[in-house]
């Protein structure tokens, strides 16, 4: 456990002692701000019956932020270690492979959460200008962050896998972006003129991230997406561990 915590601290340090982490967080904040300014402009003209949490997560900004930040956050996890020549030192230190993978995942996940945390502040600011205090519901906010955490876990674990596979950070980022985009495109059932039927339709509905995120933002909790995202995260982390092991014995 001690080794794991040291590794997590090392990961966080790598983000926040250099400018990388701050640049990433400020980029996320700028995009979140941009989407809020857009929403404010619309709500100032036309009333809506949807709470503010729902307003944000159906915008293209949210998915843009999610699809772009995960590759940037995770591309350095393994690929950077290899290019900087610290990978061998890390692998020969007295830690298990799974501890390394988990620490890198936890570090990226914490940066991801730190980047999203100001969203709560943005929501509170916006609710101050509303005619109805229930435009922001604390329980809905909690379920929204729960959804963010679950979906983010999948993207970050995918990023860790891509970074473990690739030698170059850029390739790792591109692979993560490609995988994330693929998963996201599967969600866009509503854009299909003739929706898939039978088991294909059921499968597409089961993995529809946009529908899941909308439900989380509404406070509608469902064990299915929770299990899906948790199992996908564990699966990608398992694959990452196997890749790391394979490289050790190669």
């Amino acid at each position: 456990m001690q080794a794991y915590l040291v590794l997590v601290r090392r990961e966080l340090g790598a983000y926040f002692v250099s400018i990388t982490g701050y640049l990433l967080v400020s980029m996320v904040l700028f995009l979140v701000g941009l989407s809020f300014v857009d929403i404010l402009g619309k709500l100032n003209v036309e009333p809506t019956d949807a709470p503010i949490t729902e307003q944000f997560f159906v915008t293209v900004y949210f998915w843009m932020i999610l699809l772009l930040t995960a590759p940037v956050m995770t591309m350095r996890t393994f690929a950077f270690e290899r290019s900087a020549g610290t990978y061998e030192a890390l692998m020969t230190s007295p830690v298990n492979d799974w501890q390394v993978v988990l620490a890198k995942f936890t570090g990226s996940q914490l940066v991801y959460l730190i980047a999203w945390l100001p969203l709560a502040f943005y929501l509170v600011v916006v609710s101050q200008f509303s005619n109805d205090a229930s435009i922001l519901n604390i329980r809905t906010l909690a379920s929204t962050f729960g959804g963010l955490l679950l979906i983010g876990s999948v993207f970050i674990s995918m990023g860790c896998l891509a970074s473990a596979l690739a030698r170059s950070q850029v390739i790792a980022a591109v692979v993560t972006y490609g995988l994330g985009l693929g998963l996201f495109l599967l969600s866009l059932r509503s854009l299909m003129e003739t929706p898939a039927e039978g088991w294909t339709g059921d499968l597409l509905q089961y993995v529809s991230m946009t529908e899941h995120m909308e439900a989380f933002a509404r406070g509608a909790m469902d064990t299915r997406p929770m299990v899906l995202y948790a199992s996908l995260t564990v699966f990608f982390l398992f694959l990452t561990t196997r890749i790391v092991e394979f490289r050790r014995w190669k």
Binding site: V25, S26, L40, L43, N44, T48, D49, Y122, V126, D132
Partner: peptide, 27 residues
């Protein structure tokens, strides 16, 4: 329930400045 926001032009400018400039810029 119908939610509306009532921001004056000046408040809108302040919020825009806060969200797009002050907060990400400070970080």
């Amino acid at each position: 329930r119908e939610f509306t926001l009532t921001l004056t032009q000046a408040q809108m400018r302040s919020v825009r400045w806060l969200f797009l400039g002050v907060i990400p810029g400070s970080v």
